[in-house]
Design a protein around this nucleic acid. Structure first.
Length: 282
DNA sequence: AAATGAACCAACCGCATCAAC
DNA sequence: CGTTGATGCGGTTGGTTCATT
């Protein structure tokens, strides 16, 4: 007997989610908290595979998501993080509260990449393009030093992996040259806030900030969902074609998202204030 | 106003990893 | 310790929207 496919290909709906499906999924999760994703579609009455449900939730329905374009500060942060972590979008996303890996990945591919190229910076290595082309050692097929470094980071930054002391000591805050490079990428950028964010983030002992959904299985209990703007859903619920009160969960407590690490909250506050600061710049 | 191309983004797919047995 | 199943991640695709001609 072979391994079961992640979902029955037969009778599983694909493609864009309808408001009705969203509603079912959110309603189910808010009511039941987390159970295994594989079981979610069945229990929620959805003709989707669990994977699809998880993706929909994490990328779109999660209440702590920010919507809209990344701010300059966030963008700069993504660049800095990418210089260190490479294409590990989930790790990068973990440092940007309210942003998903998919969102960041998309933004990188559609905006930042082009921006960097325009600025003469290789989006893969984060080195100047002309420098790169003049370097006989490097070619585009073999990712240069930075990629090698990021391979090390892959080990040292991934909590699941055991790190050697050498790897971990050389991992992040100490080895800041690339950040300095990327900081100097755009000296005309009035938004030095991003550098501040980055440095503060690295000071944070480079502990991976847990994603909010790491704790979303905490049962829904409280009564302050309608809160004081604390719930990101308040501001952002407009992007949904329905109102969360439709679910009868107006008293839903987002305490499961309060489980977010203080870092995360700090970062959120920080980026919010930076955002404001940035707007004031403009 | 219509046609076309570019840009954007949600969603899918396949592989990797981890935990349970 | 190997196998299996669930979940997570990153690359990619395809549909939709926007801009240009």
């Amino acid at each position: 007997m072979g391994r079961q496919p992640c979902c029955d290909k037969l009778g599983v709906k694909k493609g864009p989610w309808t408001a009705e499906e969203d509603k079912k999924l959110v309603n189910f999760i808010l009511t039941n908290g987390q159970c295994c994703w594989r079981a979610v579609p069945k229990l929620a009455g959805l003709l989707r595979c669990g994977k699809s449900c998880r993706l929909r939730w994490t990328n779109y329905l999660r209440p702590d998501l920010k919507r809209g374009l990344l701010t300059e500060a966030e963008e700069q942060l993504v660049i800095d993080l990418h210089a260190r972590l490479g294409n590990r979008w989930s790790k990068i996303a973990a440092r940007l509260p309210g942003r998903t890996d998919n969102e960041i990945k998309n933004h990188w591919n559609t905006h930042i990449k082009k921006k960097l190229i325009k600025m003469g910076i290789d989006p893969v290595t984060h080195e100047p393009l002309d420098k790169k082309s003049s370097s006989p050692k490097q070619d585009h097929t073999s990712p240069p030093q930075l990629d090698h470094e990021s391979e090390n980071h892959r080990e040292s930054t991934d909590g699941a992996h055991v790190t050697t002391s050498e790897e971990s000591t050389s991992s992040l805050p100490e080895n800041c040259s690339s950040v300095d490079e990327s900081r100097s990428i755009d000296t005309s950028n009035p938004d030095q806030d991003a550098s501040l964010i980055t440095s503060l983030l690295w000071e944070d002992d480079y502990q991976t900030v847990p994603l909010p959904n790491s704790s979303w299985q905490i049962p829904v209990t409280g009564d302050n969902y309608s809160g004081n703007g604390g719930s990101p859903w308040n501001e952002n619920s407009t992007w949904l074609s329905f109102d969360y009160q439709d679910f009868g969960v107006e008293d839903f407590d987002f305490s499961c998202f309060n489980g977010m690490d203080m870092d995360l909250e700090m970062n959120m506050n920080m980026s919010t204030s930076l955002e404001i600061g940035h707007h004031q710049h403009n």
